[in-house]
Design a protein around this nucleic acid. Structure first.
Lengths: 363, 363
DNA sequence: GCGCATCACTGAAGCGCTTAACCCAAGAGA
DNA sequence: TCTCTTGGGTTAAGCGCTTCAGTGATGCGC
């Protein structure tokens, strides 16, 4: 490459006008405008241009001149080269526990929009509820040199988070990552939600309650599950935990199984609305009525949940606030190297028609 | 930088053992393993290692040796440096017309998974149904040096696609991009769907039909809308077009307005299920029954659509096939520079309970 | 036994940018 | 008047990889 086309010397030859090029080949890619082009045009050095464009080393007049030329030439800094030189890519990874979850889809989309508005692109990955895939993806994203990684963890207790936090700015949503040096954590007070939900169900007369959770049996120490157990104990309830995927078919299958078991629960508490949808579908398949035969409560309060018949009782997190906080704190960690304190969001109950007293005739 | 720390010469000094470093500062980032490290370890040149790791210039034994050392050292090629050197980033952009659309969310997620399985990361962007934002994002993604851009266009007729296609491999989903040299197009036969839908509604007795479309008034020449007009003409129908956002609140507002107009339609044909959800909500607000007071048909057949009461009539596209095709053809275009022919997908009607004859009492 | 093609690999240039270090002229302070 | 700054630059190194153009050793045909 160092002979065939004497790149620099050639370019040096004045303007970017179609000078002494092997002209008859049409350049499909119009050749990128580089710093050097602007440097030539303005008579400055490339470094000066680089500084000027970034507003450093502020000689206002020169800055204006450079910017003007840059605009005229349609200059766009090459993010790749910039990343290599500066060590920051401008990318933020978003690792979702399960993108089959409508709520996580919304959050991912909102994060994407918000980060874009501060000049950063997002790389979205989906762990599909699989802790191992999650580990792989996390390390893969870190290898991609993302400036930060936002994670909605499948397994918050996993060992690798510590390592990931060492490699990049790490922010968690939903659950905290104990032991890892996270830059920010915006976590849900799932405990409060679960407690409230179980009490409501109990007050309504339910005793046998199925809890659908995204967790694998290997992570029984997640806050939500642990608290479900505690509350169940203290109230003397018959609570069973059922790991479930977030997609409709998967959740429906779980619900179907649970509902057709020997002594089925009279109520479902789903740790994600997506799973509750599965309960609706499963119940319908079996000819059971919601809420008369089976009550359902969800978590996340996705907009579509209130569209169902009956509208789904759920718990809403302030999604806008959440996204705002996450982006703001993450950016702060990237730019100023400042970590933030953990922020806990409280759930707002949205009781709706999907909960009713259990039919006494049924058992 | 060229004085303080004589990078190369220092590294050259044998092993990567903690040689003569300013030791007492703990290296938080454990220093990346580079090609050079492997080169030293194996006694080869960096170039040789580069070739070996990529399976080029195949001396099987050396290759094994190199790979072994690489594994042991936990080498991971720096994608940024690779991108800068080779000119391909390994990123694929996905530009969605509107991520408020549940179906597009699913497609985006599926594309992400699929591309990941072939070693490429996706940058997802959301045009929020805004043609101008779409143009901005398209060019921004191209600037990011994505190897390819997958687009679910808001405005397929926009002029900038031609330019974008010149800059990167461009694939479109849904609508084709007339005039642009796309690498692949997987388009929907919306015409067939719309025609079929209108006929069904007519057969059912409907004459005043509202069509909800994602388009802005500025793009009246989209296939679907054009055909809606044609069919309406030929059947002598009273068809009105209503641009609508995909999010529930936005679509609900549109539906509410339409439904409370002087001479409301008896049926809605929505070019996306997400919009149909809005009709359900709007109708409910006004105390109207679906389907007795107003019939609704959707497009895309999102899984949740069959969960509604009544289940939404819709048209399904083979999403898996779609994603497969798009990824396969895009990768082919990137790697082998081969363009593919346009592929047209036919819709499969999924008639369900949301369509019924108009109530004759109402007018 | 000699020329020639392979093989296996090396050296160096280059991707387009950032950044540390240096440098010169002009204004300020003494 | 002379030194000290400071503003406004410049130079060059370097990011970690790819890739082109060699280059000695082999292997081979005849």
């Amino acid at each position: 490459m160092h002979a065939g086309r004497p790149l620099h010397s050639e370019r040096r030859g004045r303007q970017s006008s179609s000078s002494g090029r092997y002209t008859d080949e049409v350049p499909k890619q119009p050749r990128r405008i580089t710093l050097r082009d602007i440097a030539e045009e303005t008579g400055l050095s490339a470094a000066a241009v680089s500084y000027a464009l970034r507003g450093l080393q502020v000689p206002p007049e020169t800055q204006r001149r450079v910017r003007e030329v840059a605009d005229r030439l349609g200059y766009q800094a090459d993010p790749i080269a910039r990343a290599l030189a500066s060590g920051r890519t401008g990318y933020v990874g978003v690792l979702c526990g399960s993108l089959a979850d409508v709520w996580q889809q919304d959050i991912a989309a909102a994060l994407g929009r918000k980060f874009l508005s501060v000049g950063r692109h997002t790389l979205i990955a989906d762990a599909s509820n699989d802790p191992e895939l999650e580990a792989t993806l996390a390390s893969q994203l870190a290898d991609q040199r993302v400036d930060a990684l936002i994670v909605l963890p499948v397994d918050p207790a996993a060992a690798h988070w510590k390592e990931v936090a060492r490699r990049t700015v790490l922010t968690s949503i939903g659950d905290g990552l104990p032991g890892a040096a996270t830059a920010a954590e915006v976590v849900f007070d799932n405990g409060a939600g679960v407690t409230d939900a179980l009490h409501r169900l109990v007050d309504c007369g339910h005793r046998r309650i199925a809890v659908m959770t995204p967790s694998r049996p290997t992570t029984p120490d997640r806050p939500a599950e642990a608290i479900a157990h505690q509350v169940a104990q203290s109230l003397g309830l018959d609570v069973t935990l059922h790991p479930s995927p977030h997609d409709l078919d998967g959740a429906t299958a779980v619900a179907r199984t649970v509902l057709s078991s020997a002594n089925p629960p009279t109520a479902f508490l789903c740790l994600a609305d997506s799973m509750a949808y599965g309960v609706y579908a499963g119940a319908r398949e079996l000819g059971l009525d919601v809420p008369d035969d089976v009550s359902v409560m969800g978590f996340d309060d996705h907009p579509l949940s209130r569209l169902l018949t009956p509208p789904l009782s759920s718990y809403r997190w302030p999604a806008d606030l959440l996204v705002d906080l996450v982006v703001k704190r993450t950016v702060k960690a990237i730019d100023e190297d400042k970590l933030s304190r953990r922020k806990v969001l409280a759930p707002a109950a949205k009781p709706r028609g999907s909960v009713a007293p259990p039919r006494t005739t049924r058992r």
